[in-house]
Amino acid sequence: MNDRYDSVILHFIARVVMAPLIIVFGLYVLLHGELSPGGGFQAGAIVAAALLLVRLALGNRQAALRIPQGLLIWLACIGLGIYMFGGILPLILGANFLDYAPIPVEWYNQFAGEHRTPRAMGILIIEVGVFLGVVAVLVLIYDLIAGSSRQ
């Protein structure tokens, strides 16, 4: 599990074909979460599965160099911080905790050319935070288990 298994077909399929497709689908599930099935947790699980696929194919020692453990812990904390930001921002603007109604979205709608409601914007902020936390913690659990294995 920690060592590299030398096979060109395995590395090509895992790194070039499968992992980018899975990551793009996960980001679609994240960004389309308030309209279609999906959301932050599902997108995080899908993207974490793609990262674990690369780790299984390349061997943990080589793949873990790209995303070190400290960065994963920071990503999980940043995700929690984004969630707290999405909860406290309406509190500052004069509404209840996690009540997205007063979030300003006019600048975003002008910038992106969409017609997003404040609640959809708030849900998107929350889901980005959940996404970062789920991805970082799932990959971190795998790294810790693989780091303590004998092979």
């Binding site: 099935p37 999906g38 599902q42 699980a45 899908i46 974490a48 599965a49 674990l52 799932l138 795998y142």
Partner: peptide, 10 residues
């Protein structure tokens, strides 16, 4: 989606 990604994969 959750079951396929978490239960069958991770």
């Amino acid at each position: 989606l959750t079951e396929a990604a978490l239960g069958a994969g991770v």
